[in-house]
């Protein structure tokens, strides 16, 4: 694993290396290096299985993070290759020529995050949502609760119970009252 990390660091300028377990490592590469890195891992290091391809929305940094999770069957190790892309103009190189299964992931990410993968077949087809006209729903600036309340006729009378508060009220009512009173007093001052 150590040698692999060294090779990746020298070849693809891998940063942010985090060894999660002794058979599992996260690395971060530049957007332009990603396809080469994944291809190298697949062809030369034996990471032949694309376990997962997913995206994260870092709205504060104005970036999307793409995670390519690869698995090696022969020595049972995983490498997770991350890359950051621009949130304003999210496009990414498609890897459907390396793994045919990546098509489904890319289609899903296109629908839920709006990240485009030019050249991926059927990437613009609807995946799970039919007739979606809003911004992609998994983006952080999409308010799913507000949308649900506006669209789906919420039934009035729903209330939630915090587990901790509920247990305190039921089992230790005096202590809960004292605790709340102290918190209230502190907050007032």
């Amino acid at each position: 694993m150590k040698e692999l990390i060294e090779r990746l660091r020298s070849k693809f300028n891998a940063k942010n290396i985090k060894e999660q377990r002794k058979n599992f490592v996260f690395i971060t590469v530049e957007k332009k290096d990603l396809e080469g890195c994944v291809l190298y891992l697949k062809e030369f290091e034996g990471y032949g299985h694309l376990t997962l391809l997913t995206a994260l929305d870092w709205i504060e940094k104005d970036q999307f993070e793409l995670v390519y999770h690869l698995h090696n069957y022969s020595n049972k190790t995983d490498v997770s290759v991350k890359t950051f892309i621009d949130r304003k103009n999210p496009t990414m190189v498609s890897i459907n020529n390396l793994w045919a299964g990546a098509r489904v992931y890319e289609r899903e990410i296109k629908e839920l995050f709006g990240i485009d993968f030019p050249g991926c077949p059927r990437v613009n087809d609807p995946f799970a949502l039919e007739g979606w006209h809003e911004i992609p729903p998994m983006r952080k600036d999409f308010d799913t609760k507000k949308y649900s309340e506006e669209t789906y006729f919420p039934r009035p009378g729903r209330y939630t119970k915090d587990n901790v508060a509920q247990m305190e009220e039921q089992l230790y009512p005096v202590e809960a009252e004292v605790k709340n009173g102290i918190a209230e007093t502190v907050r007032k001052k």
Binding site: T144, S148, E149, Y152, F153, P154, R155
Partner: peptide, 13 residues
């Protein structure tokens, strides 16, 4: 809506 009451994709009633 159950546990999916605030989901963008499941109906409530």
């Amino acid at each position: 809506g159950g546990m999916y009451w605030d989901s963008y994709n499941t109906i409530n009633r």
